[in-house]
Design a protein around this nucleic acid. Structure first.
Lengths: 193, 193, 193, 193
DNA sequence: CTATAAGCGAGACGGTACGTCAAGTCTTTGA
DNA sequence: TCAAAGACTTGACGTACCGTCTCGCTTATAG
């Protein structure tokens, strides 16, 4: 093949970088993760890292958040099931292991970099948006909703409520978070009957 | 008076610092705000700043967030009015002028500093918590609520929904945010009748 | 009389300062002695210190070196005895307890401050110069010297040789320093017969 | 070759640093020489300087004193000539251009740093010690000395006498210093005949 | 026996430099 | 010939002292 020139080498480097980032994130958190440390921990030159990503945020997003984002679309057959499923998924991402520690930092870095913000939102938020649209559409078709639902408001509640629980209120009741969220989301929908 | 030792001088310095921080925040955002710049812009020595606050986050919190936090309790006489009022206030704080630019950075800095996190939450979130409890209590007494409401869930929605709109979804429809939020909050309450 | 107003008080403060300086000098050396620390250790305000001396060097000189300098003139009756006595005294000052630790710092500070240098030299070196002149004069009168001796060269040897032993060569043979010095000084003189 | 990675670049930087240090030393003296100023004057980053030396003293020693120390051993064929030569050399180092301004500061900084002191003494004083030993040995072999000479005392006089002239007595008769020193050194030796 | 002036402490401040960390760029080279 | 390694500049960090200033309290002695 043609483009297999440095592919193997590159893949191995990618591997080491991903491992280093995960480890450092666990050990020092997002704020304590620096390009310098990643380079040292992975035995890589800083140059190599900058050739791949333009910033720490992009790197973390690519290696940690995006990787976890390859989930299949939700379709349980009923609105109840779908909302429960998506609530669970949202709580996992926002309050679960990599996201909980990484999101605040990522959001802060987005503030100063419009390009990063756009890319990050596209990938991270866009997927959920499509899922939500599909879920509400099907529910509407099944007659479970009496009128057009506010997808955007639903989306904001889906992500914002667990985010607020974890980062603003410091509620540790993570255990029940997804059930409580599902219940709240239901109340927000214009249920038929 | 007794301890008026350096009080006048101190007050004048405080003034200059507050102005400099506001200006720099407007101009460079939270990330671009540095102690060094604050010192330069205010004609103050770094030492003087560190004598007051232990970090940029504490400084910004004290000068920007805390100052705006001296609002009177909400009591319009009806649940509808109260919810609208508190929604408006939450949107103002989360999506309004200082908060919108400052909160993501502040939340990110809280991740690495438990003490700061506690103080910030106490002041910023505690006030709202009390307001919410009072509003729901009165509504219950008036018979507007059929059962005990979930104050915590309400709180999370109150702050999280506008936060998600602004920082996760990048919805610029700030104009209607507070009305939409008030409507959503209503749906979350166990209204009587 | 007029200026007896705050004399008692002043004397007490002087006392505390002298003690603090000695203690700190012993504990931290000249380089580690700071006005700030002296103020703290003596329970004195920095202002009070600056009201007395213009710099650390002046303070140390006044409190440590000058105090020790109030010795009676040397006159043992013979050149041998006089040289031994002055050698002993020089070794005590240069290699003895306060001087050994203080002189290098003092000399360094003199480099940048001509006024300090002049005052310090006057007091510290002037006394010895007079002693030397007297000793050599008397020896000449007694016929112990065959010709006019080089007082300046004698002076340089008197101070420079022990200084070099202690600070340049790091010879710890402090015990015999003064005898060896006296012997060397003798060789430098144009002894009669 | 192996470690020729950044050698060229490094050498150029070294050059600029040496020049800046010399210039600043001339202009501001040792006390007025700061790492910050060296960085500014050389167009270099402070980091780059700290990567090379741990302190101002080490830097000055390396760039100013050590560089001048690469002199060939003394051997004029006679004790007279040798002593004159080494006296001249000592006066040049102690009272001459870089040393005169640099030594007091360097000696003061040595007080607080044993490691620096040892290295500095090794390089600066060790060379002279070997020279002295060789000179006295040869003179003894030639029969110019009647008995074993005190090399250590000679060394202390060699360095200490000019040091005292310059820094303690402030004698500006630098012109004749080396001749006067040579004469004094002679008197200290146990000359034969 | 008391008024008063010298002396003092306490803080707050603007500044300079420190030594460190990380960001991001530039130069050289080795495979 | 191009990707890495390594040296670099820049900017900010948080700290230690510097030397100055202002204020209001102590205190011992002169009258």
């Amino acid at each position: 093949m043609a483009n297999t020139r440095g592919a193997t080498r590159r893949a191995r480097t990618d591997e080491r970088l991903a491992e280093a980032v995960s480890a450092l994130l666990r050990e020092h958190g997002y704020a304590g993760l620096t390009i310098e440390r990643v380079a040292a921990a992975s035995g890589t030159a800083k140059t190599t890292i900058y050739r791949r990503w333009a910033s720490k945020a992009e790197m973390v997003f690519a290696l940690v958040v995006h990787r976890a984002d390859q989930a299949p679309p939700i379709d349980t057959g009923s609105l109840v099931g779908d909302v429960q499923a998506i609530a669970e998924r949202a709580v996992a991402v926002v309050a679960g292991d990599p996201g909980r520690d990484v999101l605040p930092g990522l959001l802060a870095d987005m503030a100063g970099d419009a390009g990063l913000a756009a890319r990050l939102r596209d990938a991270f938020v866009g997927a959920a948006r499509d899922d939500i649209a599909a879920i509400l559409d099907r529910a509407h078709d099944r007659g479970e909703l009496s009128e057009e639902a506010d997808a955007d408001g639903f989306h904001a509640a889906l992500l914002g409520i667990p985010y607020a629980h974890v980062h603003l209120l410091a509620n540790d009741a993570t255990g029940h978070l997804s059930e409580r969220l599902a219940e709240q989301l239901f109340r927000l929908l214009p249920l038929a009957g």
